[in-house]
Nucleic acid binder design. Structure first.
Length: 508
RNA sequence: GAUUCCGUAGCUCAGGGGUAGAGCAUCUGACUUUUAAUCAGAGGGUCGUGGGUUCAAAUCCCACCGGGAUCACCA
């Protein structure tokens, strides 16, 4: 704690020319002049605020204990000239009482240089005040880190969504709802991982950097490796690598990780998002429906005290399995009266769709027409969980042809709250068929469809060695977290969502 | 990418052509078992940035920067 260090800090703060910062730096100096290290190395915590609140829930108003505890956290507010401090740690909040009867005058003087926002450690005796607040009568108080910036308004917290996204730490310090959301996100991911491990799946990691962006229909990010001097794509899906592992003999694998798609940003889309992809050898898409239900229903129960019901906005969603299973074409038929199973040419399908008022892109194939009508007329009404099954082959280049209909595939998408939250199929294992499907994608690509898939020869070669019958399932973690935390925007469940850089203008 | 709304003190927000406002926070003092503590006083602003209209712009117009929402693409 040399003097020059403080001067450096001061110089930085002067750039901000903020009197609030200057006042806190002055307090920092005052502590240093009294020989206090404002940035110490270690502190032994014995108790957490949330645990103490539970342990002493029945401690009578006005009651005193002889229990000595040591807690640590951030000073959130300060009443009666420092006599009462609200301390917040990772588990909750507890009041600190610092009175001259229990603390030396030197200690009290030191505390007069503490500010709201500082990290402090407190040792003291547990009691409940006559006003009913669980409190620690401090006998020892230490600074664990001096804060030199003012916290946001103590009552309203941070409302400005831009600050909440850019400076998530402030959001987490101030807004308990946000803390709860990210804690719940962590529990959801842990649960899914454990549920899969319990079913003998093996967690694996596959590349983020792909020479060919495959496994999904999406626009990739392109980057470059200098030493190899090759272009690389950030992965749009781990699918093709996970299937290679199944070919290699790992029968049950899963990966929980990020995918990157260079597409629009919306309430439901962030350029990087997290999915779990699961592959199970000797299983088909029917098995994957059961697996999806076990994982998702289980996640809901574990985060909602055993209930399968979740409130989201105005809806109450019940995840209780089994979920209905309806084919995409049947759903469209029910909703619009159009039976696409009887309109098998692209032109007749497109004509029927356009009669129903849906714009169809020129040169759309049959599956694209069905998908467009489904998206426009059906999707929005799928609030309760449902598996939409047997999707058109035209739009499912990695799924096995349906065993009883050659224009469909054994593929399903699970919808909740009108969002697709899972996508699964009986994986295509026929290398000849796979090559044909890729060729159709390449043709679409050459016609200008940037999202059509690329031909992955290396993957086809892998298939030629033999992929057992395999069921694959992908679940969008972010959307699941949104549903289970009543978050209307994906940005509320991603700690640091993608935003534009702030353009900072340097003052002369 | 298109449309639309928003940007005022560290934070939460008023003000919408005529002297820049409040609460919290900060500083000074009082009080010292409070709960968004209270009381008295003080400091704190290039009103996102740059142009324009006007005697006069936070306010009206244009461009740009950043954000929200809707739409398009998508999970």
């Amino acid at each position: 704690m040399s003097k020059s260090k403080v001067e450096v800090i001061t110089a930085t703060a002067v750039v901000d020319s903020n009197t609030l910062v200057e006042a806190k730096i002055e307090n920092l100096k005052q502590l240093q002049e009294r020989g206090v290290q404002p940035y110490p190395y270690k502190f032994n915590v014995t108790h957490y605020a949330g645990d103490l609140q539970k342990t002493y829930a029945n401690l009578a108003t006005g009651a005193m204990t002889t229990d000595v505890v040591t807690v640590a956290g951030r000073m959130m507010s300060n009443r009666n000239n420092g006599l009462f401090i609200d301390l917040k740690d990772s588990t909750g909040k507890i009041q600190i009482f610092s009175h001259k009867d229990h603390l030396s005058s030197d200690a009290l003087e030191m505390m007069s240089y503490f500010d709201i926002g500082d990290m402090i450690g407190v040792t003291g005796i547990v009691r409940r005040t006559p006003r009913g607040e669980l409190t620690i009568n401090s006998t020892k108080v230490e600074i664990l880190c001096k804060s030199i910036r003012p916290l946001p308004e103590k009552y309203h917290g941070i409302h400005d969504v831009e600050i909440r996204y850019r400076k998530r730490y402030l959001d987490l310090i101030m807004n308990d709802d946000s803390r709860k959301t990210f804690k719940k996100r962590s529990r959801i991911v842990s649960f899914i991982r454990q549920a899969l491990l319990n079913e003998n799946f093996m967690e694996v990691e596959t590349p983020m950097l792909h020479p060919i962006a495959g496994g999904a229909t999406a626009k990739p990010f392109l980057t470059h490796h200098n030493a190899l001097d090759i272009p690389l794509y950030l992965r749009i899906a781990p699918e093709l690598y996970l299937k290679r592992l199944v070919i290699g003999g790992f029968d049950r694998v899963f990966e929980i990780n990020r995918c990157f798609r260079n597409e629009g940003i919306s309430m439901k889309h962030n350029p990087e998002f997290t999915s779990v992809e699961i592959y199970q050898a000797y299983a088909d898409y029917t098995d994957m429906m059961g697996l999806a239900e076990r994982i998702i229903e289980g996640t809901v129960k574990t985060t909602h005290d055993g209930s399968t019901k979740v409130k989201f906005g105005e809806h109450e969603i019940d995840f209780k399995a089994p979920w209905p299973r309806k084919s995409m074409t049947d759903l469209v038929h029910e909703k619009t009266g159009i039976d696409f199973m009887a309109l098998l040419t692209p032109s007749s399908a497109a004509l029927a769709a356009e009669k129903a008022g849906i714009a169809i892109k020129p040169a759309s194939n049959w599956g694209e027409v069905v998908e467009a009508v489904f998206a426009d007329k059906v999707e929005g009404a799928l609030i309760q969980p449902i598996h939409v099954i047997d999707l058109p082959k035209d739009i499912s280049p990695l799924a096995k042809e349906h065993r009883s209909n050659n224009i469909l595939t054994e593929r399903f998408e699970s919808y909740v709250n009108a969002w697709e939250i899972a996508n699964a199929f009986s994986e295509l294992s026929d290398p000849f068929d796979q090559r044909d499907r890729f060729k159709k994608q390449v043709e679409a690509r050459e016609k200008g469809n940037e999202e059509a898939q690329m031909l992955d020869e290396d993957f086809i070669e892998a298939l030629e060695y033999g992929l057992p019958p395999t069921g694959g399932l992908g679940i969008g973690i972010d959307r699941l977290v949104m549903l289970l935390t009543n978050s209307p925007s994906i940005r509320d469940v991603i700690a640091f969502p993608t935003l534009r850089h702030h353009h900072v203008v340097q003052k002369p």
